[in-house]
Amino acid sequence: MNMSKNEIFEVLLESIYEIVPELEGEKITIEDSLQDLGANSIDRAEIIITTLESINVSIPMIKFGEAKNIQDIVEIIDIAIDELHINS
């Protein structure tokens, strides 16, 4: 698997629109936080799991606890993908 951060962001965006359809049509930037966009705690967990399933990478949810915005989520996924490469 080889994905750029931008590609990870694109997958994340798809998940956000799928889980919180009210955001359809709204411009979402990588600096936005899911909470500020109106995603509740369950939505946020759901968005992350849906994204991980699409990318097919498994990361414990606890690692996302410190994420402040979408950028942080992308970083955590990016690091996990890199580690997968090193280990494989």
């Binding site: 369950i42 967990a45 759901e46 799991i49 498994s58």
Partner: peptide, 12 residues
Amino acid sequence: DNLEFVSPNYAL
């Protein structure tokens, strides 16, 4: 075959 992706919403 892929328990890691179970929906968190299911817990509710």
